[in-house]
Design a protein around this nucleic acid. Structure first.
Lengths: 161, 161
DNA sequence: TATTGTTATACTCTATAACTATA
DNA sequence: TATAGTTATAGAGTATAACAATA
């Protein structure tokens, strides 16, 4: 059972109130808000004995079982070496299992167990409720606007160079 | 010299594309964007040999020297025990020093050293440039809108219960 | 040769609890 | 008694490098 720890540090005052324009103000606000969001999501998860990183694994597999560790590493933007430890932990908790790929004997395919699905079903409503609560202060139209902004920023922050 | 590591895991697909409304979509987008932002800020910091968490410390002290470890812990939303290690590390790098509080012999006051100020001066422009680049795709008006949304969300996510 | 997964090693950050010195 | 800082312990997550088995 993973011992319910707080999320990593929130990286709040990375940039302090500075006169150099709104970009920095927004960046600070994003960092600040993300810290709180992450913290509260972690707290909501902790009664289920799962960390946010582990929940990411479960949700990725919930979205689509049977991927390899390498594929999971790519989706999580983590090295394959780290996936080993991650799967060791969710595996030890009984939520995920490795099955050898019959066509490629180097590879493992990852599957949610019944317990893993059960956990996801139990934990998801709380997560959704929390998110609805936190974002409930914005209207649907405002949420759509913010979503559009973030999509554009996600595009920009993916660019190289 | 702290060895320039990547930020913690990005917590991306915590909630997957789900039919239950825009709150969840926006939450996923925030998590996603924050992951990229944090990663790129860390990368920009790593040539200076400082982590994001350590940079937080430096920026907090840049903003105002002479606070106690307890006060720093409160601002960083971290336990005082963690601040000990954090200050040990930035202290070992020569960026911050503890000076005993003359009025309260239990307390330390934290000060940026010349090297710490030098580092901040060297690292800040890169951070600001990066932020301007990432957020440059949004107009000033859009940035102001987004800032307003985030401020409202920050208020909401602070509420208890 | 390239790829999948593994192990080994080391570091940062976090949490809790118990402790010391001082207030 | 309460507070500031420390130490001890533990665990999660990350990175790099080298390795085995397989393709």
């Amino acid at each position: 059972m993973s011992p319910a720890r707080k999320p990593p540090q929130i990286s709040l005052p990375v940039l302090n109130d500075d006169p150099r324009g709104w970009e920095v103000k927004v960046a600070v606000a994003v960092l600040q808000f993300h810290g709180r969001l992450e913290r509260r999501m972690s707290e909501a998860l902790s009664p289920h004995g799962v960390t946010l990183a582990q929940y990411d694994v479960l949700m990725t597999l919930w979205h689509g079982d049977g991927i390899t560790q390498q594929e999971l590493a790519e989706r999580l933007l983590v090295t394959k070496a780290n996936v080993v430890g991650l799967i060791d932990r969710v595996g030890a908790a009984g939520w995920v299992e490795r099955r050898p790929d019959p066509c490629d004997r180097r590879a493992n395919r990852l599957y949610l167990t019944d317990a893993g699905r059960k956990l996801a079903i139990e934990a998801q409503p709380g997560q959704f409720a929390l998110v609805r609560k936190i974002f409930g202060g914005l209207s649907e139209e405002e949420l759509q606007q913010m979503h559009a902004f973030l999509e554009r920023l996600n595009g920009a922050s993916t660019e190289c160079g």
